[in-house]
Nucleic acid binder design. Structure first.
Lengths: 248, 248
DNA sequence: GTTTGACCTTGATCTGGATCAAGCGAGCCC
DNA sequence: GGGCTCGCTTGATCCAGATCAAGGTCAAAC
């Protein structure tokens, strides 16, 4: 599936916010020093809310490990997740001091934070960092648009299958070099959080998980561990085209 | 109709792709010359498809006037709109030569195009342009996330009301400085395109439009012209909080 | 080892929006 | 003028997923 993952020399932006997805090979050492000076780590535990919509946020960050979500809530309590941040994803918006969404850690989480104001200055002075950030934001926009198709047009079963395949893919990229066709992973979200992701209720999520299990598409080991015996069979349930879409 | 619009000296990026939303006061004249050299206009008529998903696209562009949509289609024909481009919006992705979505003109449309490769070079050499593009992309991401809430959690009536208020707002920003409380505008989309935007069927769109009309929230003048006697009453139907959210 | 509470599953029922099916009005071509 | 097509409305029916309501499981707390 995906590739053997590039290994990279330690001198290259080990903690640069643009490090995780692709090695930033262009950072000069003085830029690294600047980043180093404004960098600090923060840890959160599962379930903890990092910031609430409307709060001030004086940092931007890169997810080191764990999972965080962005979500919006309506007055009457209806809730929709609008972002899922896995390791290497970026959190926060330069030039904006308030967040528009609740940010929650759904597993134990470590962030690599950068003080926002100096980070913004850095953006101004090092074009390749802002270009990399643009690239990442455009990727996120593409992901958001696929998510829209899911929310607007997919059936409950397709939504679940799509979600599982997204997690499987991201997880495989992190941990193992995606062997033949089977994969296994832990769900980083409760059934309720999955429902918030997918625009469903938690009961429907539970029922469709059971249905996929009964149909042999997935196996469950406990509530959270998922085994996918045949990844292609899962993909068939997503409703997506066979060819995975457009790449750069 | 138009325009109260900020007037700006001709030297300031009259055709810079970042012109429309906010005047780019920082362009130097040599940058303007560079932009000028790679710029050309293209016109499309209502209904025309500009590019299909997977096609090559060798330009990026700014919408001058008219409306374009981005949409995704599943194998079985289910279709979801994932982007709505109004005047001043940006189309295309630097560093990617294929488009991921069908791009369609839904009204007569004029684009101000820039050849992609030289535009990319310009991005590398003029940081403030890439920063402005990052800013615009982040705005689009915010809009996409609000759209997700709409698709995942809102009722049909709330979806219609939200859509109308979005168009009304964008239209008002263009043409008139939003007087007291009433507004009027033309829908730039057919009922079917609205359905694709909102994750509904065209029949449901039609019924909910009729319902809003019967409830006095809107008036119809023909099929396309909408009169909103009391904008606040329309907003009450959207399901959104009263305070319009977070701004920079 | 019992209680508690967070998560999850399952069942019964309801309903908002999809689907299927006419029909209408206005512009356009012959 | 007549027929056509396109965009839209309206009606009747259906069904996927929501809602309401129990239970079950398991680990931590007492």
């Amino acid at each position: 599936m995906s590739q053997r993952q590039i290994t990279f020399p330690q001198r290259e932006c080990a903690d640069c916010p643009i490090r995780h997805r692709a090695v930033c090979a262009r950072c000069e050492s003085d830029e690294l020093e600047q980043l180093e000076a404004i960098k600090y780590y923060r840890n959160y535990e599962a379930g903890q809310t990092i910031v609430w919509a409307g709060d001030k946020m004086d940092f931007v960050a890169s997810v080191v490990h764990g999972v965080a979500t962005l979500s919006q809530t309506m007055e009457d309590g209806r809730r929709q997740m609008v972002g899922l941040l896995l390791p290497s994803d970026f959190l926060g918006r330069p030039n904006r001091d308030r967040v528009a969404y609740d940010v929650t850690a759904t597993t134990d989480l470590q962030l690599c934070c950068f003080r926002r104001l100096p980070f913004q200055e850095l953006l101004g002075s090092t074009p390749h960092v802002s270009q990399r950030l643009l690239e990442m934001t455009l990727d996120e926009l593409d992901a958001a648009r696929e998510w829209m198709l899911l929310l607007g047009r997919k059936t409950a079963r397709e939504k679940i299958a799509s979600f599982l395949s997204i997690i499987a893919r991201r997880d495989a990229a992190q941990s193992q070099p995606a062997k033949g066709h089977g994969v296994a992973f832990d769900l980083p979200l409760t059934r309720e959080a999955m429902a918030d992701y997918l625009g469903l209720t938690l009961e429907t999520v539970s029922r469709q998980m059971t249905a996929l299990k009964n149909d042999g598409v997935i196996k469950l080991d406990g509530k959270r561990r998922i085994i996918v015996p045949d990844f292609a069979a899962l993909m068939d349930e997503t409703g997506d085209d066979a060819d995975g879409g457009v790449l750069s």
